[in-house]
Nucleic acid binder design. Structure first.
Lengths: 225, 225
DNA sequence: TGACAAGTACCAACCAGTTGGTATGTTTTT
DNA sequence: AAAAACATACCAACTGGTTGGTACTTGTCA
């Protein structure tokens, strides 16, 4: 075996690098360990190829870890699927929480700001702007209820962040239509998910952005005086 | 081998059943041959499980044919995928062409009629009302351009059937907005595709119907005086 | 402080079952 | 008779998952 030969050379190099730096930080956001690397790889690969078509081996290669590491952190591929959905929820949750549109004063402006923001990030590589949980939902809704629920939670919890502004907008503008804030919030997500499918079908984001513009026009027609 | 023993028994039973009935019909719409049965099985199974997760063996069992028959009619699984998309296009094309909303006189009414019709058929089992080509697109857009193009053609050609009415509605109601008939037609499909994802995520069609209602409200706001 | 036990993180090789696909018939239609 | 439509038996490659083991970290107690 070459193990005993290669080891003493590689070991002293990797050892005393960056331990004291991480110490004072309360909770390191992203330790570059195997679990995190696998989840990160999953976010990209699954959006690119779909859940079923993405193999455990491919995930391991992309993450630069071995299969042993994979099954140390996840009991099964499906368990990684659940974790990936939750990881997606956390990642995108933080991303949208930091977005600038929250600073606007008017609820309608914030809402339109959100839509504009969503439209602006539809750009470049398709796998980069499409939605992990929307993709996974399509594939596993009938076969894996746990992944499906994790995906549903991700979509609906994101939609729920819009409800206060929608509710305020309805009250503010005197819109007491025959719909609930929750249903309109869900509708915005439906448009986005559908827009992603059109983008995938046509191979570019233009159709998707155009659809989001229609959604914006709808909101303006609802809430503009 | 049991082959020579079992055969003479099974053969005479299946032989003289129903040949003369199909003969006088000029072009049988749906010959119950292996190819058609496989395509029909594909429509259901792929919508239920996704394209990748649906195996050739499962398709053969569902269609009641053997693998030999499968690869006699399709060079590969991917070729069946393309054929399934085209079969879907033909099937749904005929279905919508026969729908009652076409008899309405006003283009806006026809448009709203279409939306109502789409809403009404969101009912019952999820695999029954969701879209084959939308599902397939999500999975193979990056890996199989031919299937993707077949799916794109299916979605866009269906959207194109709405364009004349949208164009007439815009002319009629004096709506010369900053959007094209094609973009609004595409938007309707985006909403539907997204609605299907929400239905899959939540496990029932209510959210989907609600989203289609928002689409209807948008069209009414656009075209109503 | 340092030795030592115990857990955590990881790895390479392997396994049984499944996958899409093929080779070679047999039957049915024309 | 010949070609098309099907069936049977099989295979190589790949799949998710397991195995037995190593390296590193951490808690504990003398």
């Amino acid at each position: 075996m070459t193990k005993n030969i290669a080891k003493p050379i590689a070991k002293p190099i990797a050892k005393p690098i960056a331990k004291p730096i991480a110490k004072p930080i309360a909770k390191p956001i992203a330790k570059p360990n195997a679990k995190f690397k696998l989840l990160d790889a999953a976010l990209l690969l699954i959006r690119e190829r779909g859940y079923t078509a993405t193999t455990v081996d491919e995930l391991c290669v992309a993450a630069g870890v071995t299969k042993g590491a994979f099954f140390h952190h996840f009991k099964s591929k499906d368990e990684l699927g659940i974790a990936a959905a939750q990881h997606w929820s956390a990642t995108t949750g933080a991303f949208f929480a930091d977005a600038p549109y929250h600073n606007l004063n008017d609820p309608v402006e914030r809402l339109i700001g959100y839509i504009d923001f969503r439209k602006d990030i539809i750009e470049g590589d398709i796998a980069q702007f499409t939605c992990l949980v929307g993709t996974m939902t399509q594939e596993i809704y009938g076969s894996n209820p746990e992944i499906r629920d994790a995906c549903a939670a991700s979509i609906l919890s994101h939609a729920a962040t819009l409800e206060p502004d929608i509710e305020a907008a309805m009250r503010d503008r005197g819109v007491d239509g025959d719909f609930t804030p929750a249903s309109l919030a869900a509708h915005t997500q439906a448009v986005l998910q559908g827009a992603f499918i059109l983008a995938k079908a046509t191979g570019d984001g233009a159709v998707a952005r155009s659809s989001v513009e229609h959604l914006k026009r709808y909101l303006l027609l609802l809430f503009e005086e």
